[in-house]
Amino acid sequence: MGTESISGIETSVPSSIVQFHMLDQLRALARANSLWPMTFGLACCAIEMMSAGAARFDLSRFGAEVFRPSPRQADLMIVAGTVNKKMLEPVKILYDQMTEPKWVIAMGNCAISGGPFKFKGQYNVIEGVDSFLPVDVYVPGCPPRPEALIEGILELEEKITGTRRWPRVKPETAVKG
């Protein structure tokens, strides 16, 4: 009894028998390493998304290669390309059809801001998908390289778990190498 032992208990044993925190961490780890993206190619960036999943870049090293055509089976929406006014409603519907938890990566400048198709007097392009979707990670580029998309997915893993599992590549070493 006494304050000393109580404080010792507080630090080592949680207040509740059911430990949600660790379970959550475990679930987050599992989710982060098996992100299932939706097969959702809009434009040029979709080809780089395919490249990221194919032979050389091999997205399956990070558990994210299972592209699902159905939004109901997918965790991650990679908006790879320009969204225009006609496509706006289908994208919203697709996002709503995805089951929780779900994340969004805005891939490429078009999805981030309208990219090269943003000019004065433009009549058809949505200037950034963050105007109607909660975007978790932005991957800039026109189109971004597959490495950039992989880095975006690693960033998303970090966001989900709170820790970075894979080493971060420094730009300096990348340039020298």
Binding site: L42, A43, G81, T82, N84, K86, M87, P90, P116, F117, F119, K120, G121, Q122, Y123, N124, V125
Partner: peptide, 21 residues
């Protein structure tokens, strides 16, 4: 029309060199 990106309109308000991309 789900990916109509106004290329023809851009051809009219970009200079010849700016249209390259």
């Amino acid at each position: 029309g789900y990916i109509h990106r106004m290329h023809e309109k851009m051809g009219e308000n970009r200079t010849w060199n700016q249209f390259w991309p």
